[in-house]
């Protein structure tokens, strides 16, 4: 009965996307965790973006990010600090938000077709970390930095320099996202089938 399984898996996919979108949103509503090593409190929202990609794969992962972007642009105060509305898109940090969608897409694709093919633990971790860094930092900054430069008229270099302040927190989030994703994949097999 192919039709039956089609609709079942489609419903399941939609629910997964909704739950991860809600997780990204919930992470923005919470008081940020302050870690002992870094004095700056880090919000967990990009961690959710990385996790959505790493756990759900490219399509469902980027859809989860897209849902958060759409809902917050439509006016829900879902972004860190209770921001939301069209002002976010037109403001200087709008590019990072758009970058989320492509960040989860890249992480999801790399996890699905590269990271999870490894059986070796170390190889899995190293490739997973590389994917999280590439998708969660390089790709997101690739949208955010030029956007800030274009909107404000700052030089590209200055805009990049400004974003480097968030780099330590983002690297840490990439490490956490990789460890969490690999742990969950071990106990929840077949997430990406």
């Amino acid at each position: 009965m192919p039709t039956r399984t089609d609709s079942t898996s489609q419903t399941r996919n939609t629910v997964y996307v909704a739950v991860f979108a809600a997780m990204i949103a919930a992470m923005g509503l919470l008081p940020p965790i302050t870690l002992g090593i870094i004095p700056v409190p880090i919000t967990l929202q990009t961690l959710g973006v990385m996790l959505a990609g790493a756990l759900l794969g490219p399509w469902r992962g980027s859809l989860a990010s897209l849902v958060v972007v759409v809902l917050s642009l439509a006016g829900l105060p879902l972004l860190a600090g209770g921001r939301g509305g069209l002002g976010v898109l037109f403001g200087p940090t709008g590019g990072y938000l758009i970058g989320w969608i492509f960040g989860s897409l890249v992480i999801g694709a790399l996890f699905k077709y590269w990271v999870l093919r490894y059986e070796n633990k170390v190889a899995r971790f190293m490739s997973g970390l590389a994917s999280a860094l590439l998708g969660g930092i390089v790709v997101i900054y690739l949208f955010g930095v030029p956007w800030t430069a274009a909107v404000t008229g700052l030089a590209l270099g200055t805009s990049l320099l400004g974003s480097l302040g968030f780099l330590p927190g983002d690297v840490l989030k990439a490490v956490v996202a990789t460890l969490v994703a690999l742990t969950v994949h071990r106990s929840y097999r077949g997430l990406m089938k």
């Binding site: 939609t14 996307v17 739950v19 809600a22 949103a25 919930a26």
Partner: peptide
């Protein structure tokens, strides 16, 4: 369905 479920899940996940 996805959009309305997301809104409903946010307080639950929090």
């Amino acid at each position: 369905l996805g959009l309305s479920m997301t809104i409903r899940f946010i307080p639950e996940l929090k």
